[in-house]
Design a binder for these strands. Structure first.
Length: 844
RNA sequence: GCGAAAGUGGCGGAAUUGGCAGACGCGCCAGACUUAGGAUCUGGUCCCGCAAGGGGUGGGGGUUCGAAUCCCCCCUUUCGCACCA
């Protein structure tokens, strides 16, 4: 065995051997328990970054542990290979996106292999190949058949840098999710949508199955879906013979309505302008409000602006005519685009009405006011002007027949009355919108739709799939679909009438690709269906999914939606595909996320060349618990490297001697009795470490503490080294401790573990060994050092046998020299003995 | 503004159930070996104090024999939401 640790050599050797042994290839085996470990698939951007390394090191530790626990482990990887960056790079460099993508995949595959992750590479997928994306098209057609994919013209989010449409989920603070400083603009476009809103209730309800998902993710999803119960109420517009519908969750406050606010984009605005005595003026004002509203959505704090249209609307509950205003803060995309203004009980209305001098009328008082006091607390005892709206539920006043009711009762009764009298009804509104999937870009899945002059929208027949993305396309990045300029792609014949027709030229959002890829891994080559039902039946659900939290309302909600559609189609028979989700923290450096734009990127491949993959991976897991952000430190990785060197030297030093001997096994009481003090000490530490690591691997996953324990074990081995050399530790015992250490290490730094295990005379790899059970007898202490407190302050320590009785502990504690000094002359009130932990003597 | 999480040495972090605060690593200090040390090994390293002792987990209060941990108030940071009617 080489006396010097050479990670480059060792890692190449074991990676080749693992591959040759087909160690990580898992196949269906109904006789064995399965375990599916999934990590979020990378986008082939050119290089693996530290965030990937962290993600995949966590998954690999788990996968290796589960293999050793005897599970049949599915651990796949693939490529989220369609997308904008490749297309943009292609435009810049006058090359084809496919060239970039495939060469980047090639390079990143090499980098992943260099890191030694235990993937079943036979299952690798790339979403940009027709064998994969044809099934995106297939899903699209299935959804189309079910009315879940539809086309409509609407205002959509447009990023001027991406030169394409974005889904609502891809807009962050009014800006593009990929370009934080680029405000999204609104455009009217014909687009394809997937009807995720048809699944809102199931997405909410089925959260009950996701008990092993982080609460935070579920909350974010809930908020994103934004379900709220309320009432639709029709106001009649005087002089127009038209109704204006509003949505409110607080119909109980409607007797306090002093105006109606309408979004500047609302269709009724055109009618108002037309009927206005001064149309030009009203139009100009509407435009001004609209312009301020667009700015408002991007900005944080905005001034509430509005304009009185001069029209009046009639509140059907009390027949009162109130003015109709255009208001910049009213959203066209939520509810009906119009709201009733109740300044006394809505803070926004309050601010607006205060600004414009609209009346404020109190109709709710706190329930505990007993009905006697008719003034809300916000109006102040002196009867001065209120400073804010009273927005709580309470009791109704000044509300005609409903006065005296509680808010809850009133909402129910008033909604029912509206329905009975035909001017309104109960309604549920959602914040989430349907998923716009059309993209005016090239590098994506063609949408399998044909437009025929005579037949209209015609889906591509299933037998004609895939619709191949043509290779020769002129890419300009100029905001129109590149496919539109490929006549041989566009020109087709109508599958229904056989006449000339043209193809849809938009491509799909790449989040479609990643919404079902993890099903494909279970049988990546199947050509007759997107997924193999039998394989899914064996491997699903995903037992553990690991990735970044940034996908909480993107991928992680789309993926759940897709699974529900798949359930409805009959492809799978469960509602939720992922049993347990883990979101790891970011890798940061100098207090900010590592990113090219910040120029603080540490390249994993360079780190592998310098320290070896084992060191990089060990450091990633040691520097912080996995759910927290990890602060990169150059000094820190040196420490990890030093540790592995130390382990290597320690084993190398004894390898020749230990190689031929057998491993000590505990044969029960007799075996334990014959251990020397040093042997006892070494085995105790070993089994305490095993105990900690084993229970931690079962779910807590604080790998940093596992590695710290392994370091302590190494320190113990090092301290006992001279005892081992002096024969006070038998080689068999020594070897047993070292082998357990190696198995623990194999979860985090597998190459060095296999190398060291081989040096000890084994032919199988660590991953093929059963995970060692910890021995409670060996890990138990036989003597304890108990701290002794006097009035809660540490005063001394006593050593007692584990089985020592309370009487003995009591007297020993009081007799301890320093303790006795503090007891001197004081009366002992109570002695608290916490078994195995401490003694506290209370005196006065 | 609302919601969530967090705040522990010079730094990353540990303390799994209310029971020795600071494991482990980094850094630093001293020493050994060495032609040399950015290798390795040994010892030290929360603060004040010569010591005895005292103080200490963002700040203040509380519960308890005992609080980093539980409760109340406040401050700070990060993340999410932010006119969703």
């Amino acid at each position: 065995m080489d006396p010097n640790y050479d990670p480059q050599k060792i890692e190449a050797k074991w990676q080749a051997r693992w591959e040759q042994m087909k160690l990580f290839e898992a196949d269906i085996d109904p006789a064995r328990k399965k375990y599916y470990v999934l990590e979020m698939l990378p986008y082939p951007s050119g290089d693996i970054h530290m965030g990937h390394v962290r993600n995949y090191s966590i998954g690999d530790a788990l996968a290796r542990y589960m293999w050793m626990k005897g599970y049949n482990v599915l651990h796949p990887i693939g490529w989220d290979a369609f997308g904008l960056p490749a297309e943009n790079a292609a435009i810049k460099n006058q090359r084809h996106p496919a060239e970039f993508t495939f060469s980047y995949i090639e390079r990143m595959r090499g980098q992943l292999k260099r890191l030694g992750f235990s993937y079943d590479w036979r299952r690798e997928i790339a979403t940009c190949v027709p064998e994969y994306y044809r099934w995106n098209q297939w899903f699209f057609l299935k959804m189309y058949e079910r009315g879940l994919a539809y086309r409509k013209k609407s205002r959509v989010n447009w990023c001027s840098l991406c030169q394409t449409v974005l889904a609502n989920e891809q807009v962050v603070d009014g800006c593009c999710w990929r370009h934080e400083d680029t405000p999204v603009i609104q455009r009217e476009l014909e687009q394809w949508f997937l009807k995720i809103t048809a699944y809102t209730d199931r997405l909410l309800e089925d959260s009950q199955y996701l008990v092993r998902w982080p609460e935070r993710v579920l909350t974010m999803q809930q908020n994103w879906i934004g379900k709220s119960f309320g009432t639709l109420v029709d106001y009649e517009l005087l002089g127009l013979g038209e109704k204006l519908r509003i949505f409110t969750t607080r119909v109980d406050t409607i007797f306090g309505c002093t105006a109606v606010f309408v979004a500047p984009e609302h269709p009724i605005v055109e009618r108002l302008i037309a009927a206005s005595p001064n149309p030009a003026k009203l139009r100009a004002e509407a435009e001004r409000i609209k312009a301020s509203a667009v700015r408002a959505r991007v900005g944080v704090d905005l001034e509430k602006l509005g304009v009185d249209t001069g029209f009046k609307a009639v509140n059907p509950y009390n027949g009162e005519a109130v003015p109709v205003w255009l208001a910049n803060f009213v959203l066209m995309e939520y509810g009906t685009g119009a709201v009733m203004a109740v300044p006394a009980h809505d803070q926004r209305d309050f601010e607006f009405c205060t600004t414009y001098g609209l009346p404020i009328r109190t109709v709710i008082v706190p329930s505990n006011s007993g009905g006697a006091e008719l003034t809300p607390p916000s109006e102040g005892a002196g009867g001065g002007a209120p400073k804010e709206a009273f927005i709580e539920y309470g009791r109704l006043i000044n509300s005609g027949p409903y006065a005296g009711l509680s808010s809850e009762q009133a909402i129910e009764r008033m909604t029912r009355d509206a329905e009975a009298q035909g001017f309104g009804k109960g309604s549920v509104q959602y914040r989430i919108k349907d998923w716009g999937v059309s993209r005016q870009r090239y590098w994506g899945t063609p949408i399998p739709i044909i437009y025929c002059e005579t037949c209209g929208i015609v889906p591509v027949p299933e037998k004609d799939l895939p619709v191949i993305l043509p290779r020769d396309v002129k890419l300009t990045g100029q905001g129109e679909s590149p496919l539109a300029n490929v006549p041989e792609f566009v020109a087709t014949i109508c599958p229904t009438c056989g006449g000339p027709a043209r193809r849809e030229t938009d491509t799909m959002d790449t989040f479609v690709d990643s919404s079902w890829y993890f099903y494909r891994y279970t049988d990546p080559k199947i050509s007759t269906a997107p997924v193999n039902r039998q394989a899914v039946g064996y491997w699903f659900p995903v037992d553990q999914y690991i990735g970044g939290i940034e996908h909480a309302i993107l991928h992680l909600i789309y993926m759940r939606f897709f699974s529900k559609v798949m359930q409805d189609i009959g492809l799978v028979d469960f509602p939720e595909p992922v049993a347990r989700l883990f979101t790891q923290g970011m890798v940061i450096k100098d207090n900010v996320k590592m990113s090219k734009s910040k120029g603080n990127v540490v390249d994993p491949t360079e780190m592998c060349a310098k320290y070896g993959a084992d060191t990089v991976r060990l450091y990633m897991l040691f520097a912080a618990p996995p759910e927290k952000d990890l602060d990169w430190s150059d000094a820190g990785i040196e420490g990890a490297s030093r540790f592995l060197n130390k382990v290597y030297r320690l084993v190398a030093k004894h390898a020749d001697k230990l190689c031929p001997v057998g491993v000590w096994k505990n044969s029960g009481d007799a075996g334990t009795a014959e251990l020397s003090a040093e042997e006892r000490r070494l085995l105790r530490k070993t089994h305490q470490t095993l105990h900690h690591v084993t229970s931690d691997m079962e779910g807590r996953w604080h790998f940093n503490t596992d590695i710290a324990m392994a370091m302590e074990l190494v320190n113990e081995l090092s301290d006992l080294d001279s005892a081992a050399e002096a024969g006070k530790i038998r080689p068999e015992v020594h070897k047993s401790a070292i082998e357990d250490l190696i198995l623990i290490l194999s979860l985090f730094s597998p190459h060095i573990a296999d190398e060291l295990r081989e040096a000890l005379g084994h032919s199988e790899t660590t991953q093929q060994v059963a995970w060692p059970e910890y021995d409670p007898v060996l890990s138990a202490e036989d003597e304890l050092e108990l701290p002794v407190q006097v009035n809660g302050k540490l005063r001394g320590r006593i050593r007692v046998a584990v089985g020592a009785g309370e009487e003995e502990i009591r007297s020993r504690a009081q007799a301890e020299e320093k303790v006795a000094q503090h007891l001197n002359g004081r009366q002992v009130v109570k002695i608290i003995i916490v078994p195995q932990k401490l003694v506290n003597i209370v005196v006065k």
